[in-house]
Amino acid sequence: MSVPRFWRKQPQRYNIIGTKCETCGSHFYPPRTICPQCRRDGKIVDHKFRGTGKVVTFSIIRTASEPYDYEAPFPIAIIELDEGTRMTAPVVCDLDEMEIGMPVQATFRKIVADGDSGMIVYGTKFVPVK
């Protein structure tokens, strides 16, 4: 992903800052600027998420795309954050540890490196809550 494209969303990615609709109380991470329920009646404000949640479903990626093939096999999951919204993220754990319902918490990690000398992308991954 291009440098500016990643940089624009850096605070949100690093700190799990999403949004919240004050009209209906829905939380959004990844952030939305329009609440699908309230649309123009919605009042969207930033919201910092706690970073705790559970695994809704998951897979282990074995055939990966470039440049993620260096990392394969790796677990990927849909995580339901405790505030009620869902996001996709890699989980750092043993492959056979993955389980539906597993409690997880966010951690700041390297996501991918674009080749040996390219940009390194950092962001949120999850680890099991021990």
Binding site: T57, F58, T63, A77, T88, P90, V112
Partner: peptide
């Protein structure tokens, strides 16, 4: 951005 592939998306549906 997290390396999600199409087989992995449908794998999450299957799971």
């Amino acid at each position: 951005i997290y390396g999600v592939t199409f087989p992995s998306l449908y794998a999450m549906i299957a799971r």
